[in-house]
Design a protein around this nucleic acid. Sequence first.
DNA 1: AACTTATCCAACCGCCGCTAC
DNA 2: AGTAGCGGCGGTTGGATAAGT
Length: 224
Amino acid sequence: MGGVAWTEEEDHLLKKCIQQYGEGKWHRVPLLAGLNRCRKSCRLRWLNYLRPNIKRGNFAEEEVEMIIKLHKLLGNRWSLIAGRLPGRTANDVKNYWNCHLSKKLNVLEAEDTQLARDAQVIRPQPRNIGSGSGKRRDQGQSPSEKGVQQESSMSSLTFDLEGHNHMLQSQQDNIYACLDQQGSIISELSMDFQLEGFEAMMNGEGSSSQWDWGDLLLDMDLYK
DNA sequence: AACTTATCCAACCGCCGCTAC
DNA sequence: AGTAGCGGCGGTTGGATAAGT
């Protein structure tokens, strides 16, 4: 493997530790679990292998389609992509992409380039609403990812940041404009969390780590 | 059977943004 | 304002195994 493989005993110790103390505080896990591993190794082992409900084996056709679609929208944001594939880890998705799909992508991109000449795609503009839950990396991004972010940037609609209320009002205005652009498809979206999040935002409860405006806009893109 | 090449995937590495001090 | 520590992320590595010659 890429490093020193985990033994069954180490797995058992880590599981026991997580069950006892919960996730997080990874810097303490090696000590608490009695493992001679760094915090990152413990976290990775848990997230990619030991965590409950991890789906193993081949990717289903629907999953592959979803990965392709999400990658087109998000670029190499593996954790975000994996977040929408229940039971799959970011590492799994990344490995699958690198092994199976990256080659296919070149072919698809060539086709897309041809299609793009024939049809102009209209996308929602205010893509930087909300802070988002994930990290942002400017370095190490693929050209396609940078392209996605550039495409997603809202250069024409800048927020007046004088006051928080004003900003929230702007967010609402922009999302409504966005909904108009998308043909008001929000009412047809089937996934519960989207509606819950939307209602929560409308009720002034703010966004959570599970949901933000970016999620809504992404879902709208996926819905197309 | 022996060797080479390709593929898979677990683990590691370095960097980033956030937070607390 | 500066910085150390942390969690988290994407890119890369390298051993195991399968497939090909």
